[in-house]
């Protein structure tokens, strides 16, 4: 991995919702091939950050760079074309379409041909071990499968940057291991750089090369997993609470 190549950078982002500062002067960068963790307590602004990076809504202040190029007024479909794909914390399936069709919608980003898109979608489903559910409609899926389908759909766009919002939380231990394996598999085989938002610490520690910790919209720590888990401020505002709850 070449640590010099920054594929995504967010500079001095601020986001206000009315009087609330959901993000407050936060910057992050993502190296090529890296798995980056974004953690912090509820309401810290993690999902808001994804929405800004993915172009769902504009930041109040700050800039987004992809491959060192400033993205002017990022919009969702443009970000997707620049190689940014995402999943949603609260799933947004195309519920009347099957898993295969959902994935095909993603695959159509790089082709106008239906058969090519179908082949591509099948490939992705095979990698994620979802082939068996290809013909089930979104509305008939369980939460686990919906989350995996969103990953499939995002991967079908052949992204270079993948944003995963809590794809592990809510799963049972076997489900967790499966998804953890899936995520590292995606990095290895597809060379995608990944940012994950996750509350399940074991997964974060296992997967991430580097972690940002947010609290009330502000950065409180950044570093390797070991540094983070021993960081005083992080323990105080986030991990301490979790450690307590875990026992």
């Amino acid at each position: 991995m070449n640590e010099r190549d920054i594929v995504l950078e967010a500079k001095k982002i601020e986001k206000r919702f009315g009087g609330l500062k959901a993000i407050d002067d936060f910057s992050l960068h993502l190296y090529k091939g890296e798995i980056l963790g974004l953690i912090g307590p509820n309401g810290a602004g993690k999902t808001t950050m994804f929405n800004i990076i993915a172009g769902s809504f504009p930041a109040t202040l700050g800039e987004i760079y992809v491959d060192g190029k400033l993205v002017n007024k990022p919009q969702s479909h443009q970000m997707a074309r620049m190689g940014v794909a995402r999943t949603y914390q609260i799933v947004r399936p195309f519920s009347n379409l099957t898993v295969l069709e959902n994935t095909m919608v993603g695959a159509f980003l790089n082709t106008g041909n239906t058969e090519t898109a179908r082949r591509k979608a099948r490939e992705i489903l095979a990698i994620l071990k979802l082939e068996g559910k290809a013909d089930i409609r979104g509305k008939d899926l369980t939460l686990i499968d919906l989350k995996r389908m969103e990953v499939a759909r995002a991967l079908a766009t052949e992204p270079r940057i993948l944003l995963l919002d809590e794809v592990i939380a809510g799963l049972n231990p076997t489900g967790r291991d499966m998804v953890i394996e899936m995520i590292s598999g995606i990095r290895e085989t597809m060379g995608v750089s990944i940012i994950i938002i996750e509350h399940v610490m074991k997964a974060v520690m296992k997967l991430c090369d580097r972690i940002y910790v947010l609290n009330q919209g502000k950065l409180i720590a950044e570093g390797a997993p070991l540094e983070i888990s021993s960081n005083e401020a992080v323990i105080q505002s986030y991990l301490g609470v979790k450690k307590h709850a875990e026992n």
């Binding site: 769902s56 919009q75 997707a80 074309r81 794909a85 949603y88 519920s95 979104g138 766009t157």
Partner: peptide
């Protein structure tokens, strides 16, 4: 079915 999800896929 889901305009926002569609946009996120390009």
């Amino acid at each position: 079915t889901n305009q926002e999800a569609a946009a996120s896929l390009g």
